[in-house]
Design a protein around this nucleic acid. Structure first.
Length: 682
DNA sequence: AAATTCACTTAGGATATGCCCC
DNA sequence: GGGGCATATCCTAAGTGAATTT
């Protein structure tokens, strides 16, 4: 079932398209690929679930890393946690067995095709193919839902071929949410049922179903919603005030529907263009609650290969806005965001596509390149801490913060239209506090309105410079008034080709993982090694400030664990008594529940004692980990910041099955990294 | 050179899935 | 074997940064 492994474009926009990566042309052909050979026979391998293609033979010496970091410039400066000095240069020699995880349980059907063979870093042409929309092939509803997706793409990595991103692109367009089905449930206005048109009812329903979200407490949300809904109700409608509306009939109906849906498991859930709804911005977003209108075919621009059939518009009587054949971009379709019409929503290829894989790899290669430059870069900005040129000085301090704290660049935002958040270049005077002699306290809302709160020791010249940048300004003024991200990045480009602010985050994250794994991994069982990995992962998450909100059920879950520990301890106590009695040939005492227990041999009781002890240990461990990670999100760095080759190489060296670290999606996304040599260093 | 547009990566929360423990 | 949970996947918002326009 669902062996059709097509991945959704996870990222942006509509998931309308699932993509299946089929084959790369001839992974073992020796010849250096010539750009455009059109003869790539679709090998028609399906990318099955996991990417277990760590094939030794194919892998080859993909590249030789020469540096062996003997100067500690390679240390991540970023260290909110006490970074230990490292002695990284010692490369332990490595293990032996290329861990071939194929045999492991979860990947029953192994995948046959590497997406991008690593052997040659610059594979030119990749074929992306998926089956087309053939009813005949659809065995069940599950498969059915993938009815629209990419058919075929040849991907040509941008880096090797100027602008061009692909040579042929075939797909089936996007899927729209079904039209609104009125339910006829009436809301109450001043206690009386009100008739609504289907359109009015649709929007009322969007609101009703959000009853138990925090948005209902936000005046801005209510206000924006009321504004938009009122327009649809019309001026002279009976409904004149949101406060007098009682949406609970619709809410209750919706809850029931949800129940029903649960029962009917196989109903198709198609991939769709974003359905209409109420905008849910993060943080104090000025537009929260606004109606996000329905997207129609005439909103959508399709990008497709010149030779490919233009997908049929799925809604009768309507048509696409435009058809393009632009092979310098990777999107398959886009529409304007109805909330902010200047912005676009795109349909992209899935993370598991070779095209994404290629650019992912390039991202990490760039970050690795920073290793060779970082020493000089640090020396340069350290010099400029004292520069008389204020622009230079601000660039120096900003770069230092980005390097040391892994801050984001901080592009300007549109104040009226967006939540008030900042990054490095947009820090305000009020976001930093100088604490003599040389501590700086940061407190600001970053991306997604996640709070960054951190007090760090900085070099004295930095401390002084920040004080100077603050002097004579208001709380709300920019700390780096002479700076913006384009100036900063223009400067960084002079130091290293392609260097921009965000590369530091990738660099810091990945090098931290690499070092932690080298330093901390000891002999032991797999579980212990996985803990080492998670610890390193956590350290990275903290550096990058990847947070999550404490789950609603956290407390009750902790309580449950405490109870289990108590129960187990009680049981343990009884077992110990029983053991002594059993040794003397006496039968066990009654348990706490008052029941008589069976007679057991001392050995049997001893065994039970051991298992009770283990259970307690496990629960206690679970509690510690849970509490420890309740606000830390490990996934974000794994997906976006940690070079998967570090992980794969470590798994090979330490014989940890890769599935212990990467789930199915990650395995597919990181197919390009699977054949890395065990001694790979970031 | 500033503003705007465009294309892409990065992000946390919601929801679905599936597995483990009683 | 069914409910509670952890985890995976879905969803789409919110960033970065280059290119283009003014």
């Amino acid at each position: 079932m669902s062996s059709e492994t097509r991945q959704m474009p996870k990222q942006n926009a509509s998931p309308a398209v699932k993509v299946e990566v089929k084959s790369v042309k001839s992974e073992n052909k020796a010849q250096v690929d010539d750009e455009d050979s059109e003869d790539d026979k679709p090998l028609n391998f399906r990318l099955k679930g996991a990417a277990n293609n760590a094939k030794k033979e194919v892998g080859g010496p993909s590249h030789v890393k020469k540096e062996d970091s003997d100067d500690d410039d390679d240390l991540p400066l970023a260290s909110r946690m006490s970074a230990k000095p490292n002695h990284s240069s010692e490369k332990k020699p490595l293990a032996s067995k290329l861990q071939q995880n194929g045999s492991s349980t979860s990947n029953a059907n192994k995948m046959k095709t590497p997406v991008v063979p690593n052997k040659r870093p610059m594979e030119k042409t990749t074929k992306v193919v998926s089956s087309s929309f053939k009813k005949a092939n659809m065995k069940n509803a599950k498969q059915m839902k993938n009815s629209k997706f990419i058919k075929s793409t040849k991907v040509t990595p941008g880096s090797t071929d100027g602008q061009r991103k692909w040579t042929t692109l075939v797909h089936n367009g996007v899927i729209f949410p079904p039209p609104y089905q009125p339910h006829g449930i009436k809301i109450l206005y001043k206690g009386k049922p009100v008739d609504l048109t289907p359109e009015q009812e649709e929007v009322a329903t969007m609101f009703a179903v959000m009853k138990d979200t925090d948005y209902m407490q936000k005046p801005k949300f209510l206000d924006n919603f009321w504004n938009d809904w009122r327009r649809i109700l019309g001026r002279n409608h009976v409904i004149q005030k949101l406060d007098d509306c009682d949406f609970s009939p619709i809410y209750d109906w919706h809850q029931q529907e949800k129940e029903k849906k649960k029962q009917m498991s196989t109903e198709v859930g198609n991939f769709r263009v974003e359905p209409p709804g109420l905008f849910r911005g993060r943080g104090e977003h000025p537009k929260m609650g606004k109606l996000k209108r329905r997207i129609r075919p005439r909103d959508i621009t399709i990008n497709i290969g010149k030779d490919a059939p233009v997908p049929e518009c799925p809604i009768a009587g309507e048509s696409w806005k435009e058809i393009k054949h632009d092979n310098t971009v990777t999107w398959l379709a886009f529409w304007n965001d109805p909330i902010n019409p200047k912005e676009f929503k795109y349909v992209f290829l899935a993370a598991s596509s070779s095209l994404k894989g290629q650019s992912d790899k390039e991202k990490y290669e760039k970050a690795r390149m920073l290793k060779d430059y970082i020493h000089n870069i640090r020396a340069a900005y350290t010099r400029d801490f004292n520069s008389k040129d204020i622009v230079k000085q601000q660039i120096a301090v900003a770069t230092y913060l980005i390097d040391k704290l892994a801050l984001r660049a901080g592009n300007e935002k549109d104040g009226e239209e967006e939540a008030d958040t900042v990054g490095c270049c947009t820090l305000k005077v009020s976001n930093v506090e100088c604490i003599p002699p040389n501590m700086i306290k940061f407190d600001f809302l970053g991306k997604d309105s996640i709070r960054y709160e951190n007090t760090v020791e900085v070099e004295l010249p930095v401390f002084k410079a920040i004080g100077k940048f603050q002097a004579g300004k208001g709380e709300n003024d920019l700390l780096f008034d002479e700076l913006d991200t384009s100036k900063l990045n223009a400067h960084l480009k002079e130091l290293m080709p392609g260097l921009t602010a965000k590369v530091f985050r990738t660099y810091n994250a990945s090098i931290t993982l690499d070092q932690q794994l080298y330093e901390e991994t000891e002999d032991g069982d797999v579980a212990e090694k996985v803990v080492v990995y998670q610890k390193a992962n956590k350290q990275v998450a903290i550096i990058c400030n990847h947070q999550r909100t404490v789950s609603k059920t956290h407390d009750s879950q902790m309580l449950r664990l405490t109870e289990r520990i108590e129960t187990a301890k009680q049981e343990l106590k009884e077992l110990k008594v029983d053991l002594e009695r059993a040794k003397k040939g006496k039968s066990p005492l009654k348990g706490a529940d008052g029941k008589q227990k069976r007679n057991l041999s001392p050995e049997a009781i001893a065994k039970k004692i051991a298992s009770a002890n283990q259970k307690i240990e496990k629960y206690e461990m679970d509690m510690t980990t849970k509490e420890d990670l309740k606000t830390v999100a490990l996934g974000t760095s794994k997906i976006n910041y940690l070079d998967p080759r570090i992980t794969v190489a470590w798994c090979k060296r330490h014989e940890v099955p890769i599935e212990k670290i990467f789930n199915k999606s990650l395995l597919a996304k990181f197919a390009w990294a699977m054949d890395v040599e065990p001694q790979f260093r970031f």
